[in-house]
Structures are given as C-alpha cells and as structure tokens.
Write a protein that binds this DNA or RNA. Sequence first.
DNA 1: CGAGACCTTGAGACAAGTCAACGCTGGTGG
DNA 2: CCACCAGCGTTGACTTGTCTCAAGGTCTCG
Lengths: 227, 227
Amino acid sequence: MQTALATAGLVPLLSATLSNRASTARLDSETRSGTRRTYEAGGEIFAEGDRAICFYKVVSGAVRTYKLLSDGRRQIDAFHLPGDIFGLEAGEEHRFGAEAVTATRLIVHRREPRGLIGDDGVLAREVVAAVMRGLERAQDHMMLLGRKSAKERIATFLLSLSQRMANGSGAIELPMSRCDMADHLGLTVESVSRTVTLLEREGLIELPPNRRTVVLRNAAALRHLAG
Amino acid sequence: MQTALATAGLVPLLSATLSNRASTARLDSETRSGTRRTYEAGGEIFAEGDRAICFYKVVSGAVRTYKLLSDGRRQIDAFHLPGDIFGLEAGEEHRFGAEAVTATRLIVHRREPRGLIGDDGVLAREVVAAVMRGLERAQDHMMLLGRKSAKERIATFLLSLSQRMANGSGAIELPMSRCDMADHLGLTVESVSRTVTLLEREGLIELPPNRRTVVLRNAAALRHLAG
DNA sequence: CGAGACCTTGAGACAAGTCAACGCTGGTGG
DNA sequence: CCACCAGCGTTGACTTGTCTCAAGGTCTCG
C-alpha cells in the first residue's frame, strides 16, 4: 500500500499515463475528509504569510490568489473556479493571499503530515495534478505578461475563461471586476475597459449592458489574436 | 540543500511515507542511472513539442527554457544553473524549448513510467522539489512581469542571480546575453542595456569593460528597488 | 588585424499609464 | 415605489515608460 502511495504521488509527475487514468477516475473527493466553508464576496480566505495549515477546493463561486508589492501594486496569480484546488504550498507559509471573488463555497482539507492524504489516492493525485496544472498555467501566463499586447492579453483571457466555464452557450459570466482582470493581466483598469470595448467594436465579442457578461462572437479571430 | 527543500516541501504536501523510507538513503543521485551529455553554447537540448523522454540536471554551464509566439516573440521562462533540474513535464511533450546558454554539461535521466524513480527516493524528492521550486519561481516572476518597472526588473534579476551563483565575492558572471535577459524580463535589449547603464551611473552596480560581469555595489538599494 | 557578434546610445514613435470626469446600475432607505 | 447613493465601468485628454529604428562602439576569436 505504501508503494502504491508513492506511485500515486510521483508517477503523474513523470508520465501522463497515470494522469489520464486519474482524470477518468472521477470519484468525488468532495465526499471525503474535507469540511465545508462559505465566504461572501470579497471575504479573505487566507493572507500572504499565514501558516499553510489547509488547502482548498472550490465548490462554487470563484477565488483569486494574489501577491502584493509594498506600495500596493497587486498581481493576481490566478482565478480558481469550481473544481480547482488552491492554497498548496511547498513551505510552511502561504506565499499568496486568497480572497473570494464572489460568494463562494469551499472544501477545506487539512494538510496532514502523513496519513490522511496518503490514504486517499484520489485526493493525492488530484493534489499533484493541481500543482502541475498550476505550473503550466503560470508558465503560459508568463508568456502573456512578458510578451503580449493588451488586445492579445484580453483575447487570451476570455478564451481561457470560456473554456474553463464551458456553460454550453458562448456566453461567459465574468465573476471578477475589471480591476481584478487588470491585476491579473498586468494592465490598468482603464486599459482593460478600453480594450474590451475595442474588441466589441470590432465585432469579436458582445457586451450586454450589464458588462459582466461577454459573448464570444468570433472565437476564431480571438484565437488568432491570442497566438 | 535540495534534500532539505524536499523534506520541507514534498512531505507536508503529499505524505511522510516516502520521506521516511528514503531519508536514510543518502546516496548521491548523480551516481545513478543518469548519462552525461555536453552541449556547446547555443546548442539545442530539446525543442518545444518534442516528446518528453528525458529530463535533465545541469552539471556546469547554463540552460534557457523558452516559449515562442508564432511571430517569433520569445519568453524565456527560466535560466537553469548547476544543480537545477529542468525538462520535467506532466504531459507527453515538452512545453518549452531548451538551449545551452554557454558550454554546458548535463546529466540526462530517462523518465521511467514507474519503477526506477520510485526506487530512488533521493532523485524522486529532488524531482518534486524541482517542480515546486519551478512553480514558486514562476509565481514570483509573474509579479515581476506584470507589475514591475524596468529598473525593478533588472534589480530583481541581478539579486536573484547573485544568490544563485554565490561565488563569494559580490561579482556575478552573467552567462547570458542582454538579449536573453530581455526575453526573460519582458523587455527589449535596448531597455536592458539602458537600465543596466543607469544602475551603474547611480552607483548601485559596477560594470567592468567586459560587460558580462556585474558587481553589486549597493545591494541594499537594489533590494529596496526589487521590492 | 579584421570580421562578426554583442552592446550601447540617441531620436522619435507609440502603447499603455495617469488623472479626471461622467454614466450606468443595482441596492437601500425614505 | 422612487430617489439617491456607492461602486463599478467607461471615456477623454494628456503624460510617460518602453519600444523601434538607426547608428556607432567594443570585445572576442580566428
């Protein structure tokens, strides 16, 4: 059993064979060993520097993880949507803050020194997959932040959200404000607003008066922009 | 050092089982199962999209891993120095290209589907530690790319290099060109050159005529800049 | 010593940032 | 039920940091 354990943790790292297997074994880990917690919009889940006792899985809502510079500049590392795991750390402390973007329900898992996680192969593999996915997203995001124009950033962001939210229709319900988008994409609020408006004028997207919904009108063109 | 990281990082994350089993096996992983390979400056180690058969550990020299956009824009994800592991993938393919920055010696490890890695606790932990460290570096780098000025980027970069190279004196031998620095920091060659010159004029660093060496004259001020 | 790669510098252009209104919208309380 | 308020989003005018383009300088290596 302990060998299986070791395998569960490491193999997905090194070969995709198992990772495929893990994703099909969609046992709901929610039913296991986690307690629930809810937050209202804007609620703090943990702060940068807090001891990393727990990690979290989003049930509903959305979460942002971010870092601050001493003068208040903020970089939002990622938005976490239902199914996503966040709050994993290699060290003792959280290297990010985390806040609920909208009203959010989470499952909280204690980071057990041994035992619990080891006993749950599904969760363990989910955790490793979450780390690897986080790494890949971070790498792609560096390309965006380092080398893409505002228009390309917005296009990339909208496409990736539409894939992750996948609600059938082409409409995306943005959970986050323009300010959050800006701090994720390395832009200012004004640039985000202007660029979104520009994409609408060019017919690539559509913006109901509400402004928190986006309909992708020309996904091919967006994809071309996103590179 | 890496063992320390592995202990701090992997174990709390996944389970202590592996660590107990392997913590007594203090064998140098270099002596196991890895073959050596050398590259001259500029040599390609693998290309984006290649099947990820192997991963690598730097013995000497320096390696850059990068992504390209269709129009040639490049983002250098990271520079890998002696002791660093790179080329690990969750999937079947390399998501980056890798090239030697200078003449480089590597150890090549086959990515065994199971078995071998599981048998070598030290290597396994090094691997997980490498992934976690890669994630942390990527996260810090997003802050840099998304929110820092050119001056702050250069300061951050020089400090981090000086820590990683740690050759006693305060002098850093830059293995990479200005162009590589630019593509890592999300700037242009010209901006890098100008900013480095500026830091020299302000007395924070010193640049021997060679231009590939940097002496940190005022690390405190640089640290303040880096945020 | 010469060629080429690399680095620096300058001048001008431009994308994105800043500052400042203004408008919408959704919620609250009179 | 409507009017107001506060927060969010948009837009405009202007500024600025970084990029672009174009020389020119400097090191290294054959």
